[in-house]
Amino acid sequence: MLELNDVSKSFGGTPVLKQVSLQLRGGETTVVLGPSGSGKSTLLRTMNLLEVPESGCLSINGDSVTFGATLTRKQVAAIRRRSAMVFQGYNLFPHETVLENVAMPPVLNGKADRATARARATELLGKVGMDHRLQEYPDNLSGGQQQRVAIARALAVEPDYLLFDEPTSALDPELEAEVIKVMVDLARERRSLVVVTHNIGFARRVADRIVFLADGGIGFDGTPEGFFASDNERIRRYLNVFDAV
């Protein structure tokens, strides 16, 4: 269970998250939707402590932190271990090969020796269809391939929750499809995914749950069926933008 309680975060005095509370059960795919600037990234990044809110608390599977006081390194590491982020810009390490990108994190985390980590990395890269390019450097890969490696890298640190921040927004449609396919596979395995996306099709087909952010708060939290049938005016307006495209 990933739990946010009364989490508030502002940037330069402008509130972005206003006392947001949310509980995400393990084994579910949660899709976070909302207009641009509604705080989706901030919410997701808070779960991995890439952003630290001013108040509230966060707990993931028994590890918890309360915001407001300074967090110790140990607290941060304990919470961070529970999740891993996949970024819109992939953020692979360009000086490491595909294999090293995926094998190094568990080694540096002290979770595996090099041989074990390499074997496991090869396996994970197979899962995302990238085990044929193990010795390649990221710059020589397409965006879709880089993002699949980034997903394997996130899996390599064995997080309880996988966090995706617009993982396909930088990709052409055919490359987007290959990344979405990997994510669908993960969802089918009942991994715990939290996905910020503008891919409404993914939300409709794959989400167990939709969280809609608006005005720094949660405007909707429920099933995709409920969400897409909602007659809430903000949700309709948000969805109309996509229908128009």
């Binding site: 590491a77 390490f93 994190p105 640190v157």
Partner: peptide, 10 residues
């Protein structure tokens, strides 16, 4: 982004 990746990987 590289530094954020390092952070998310702990």
């Amino acid at each position: 982004g590289q530094l954020e990746a390092a952070r998310t990987l702990n």
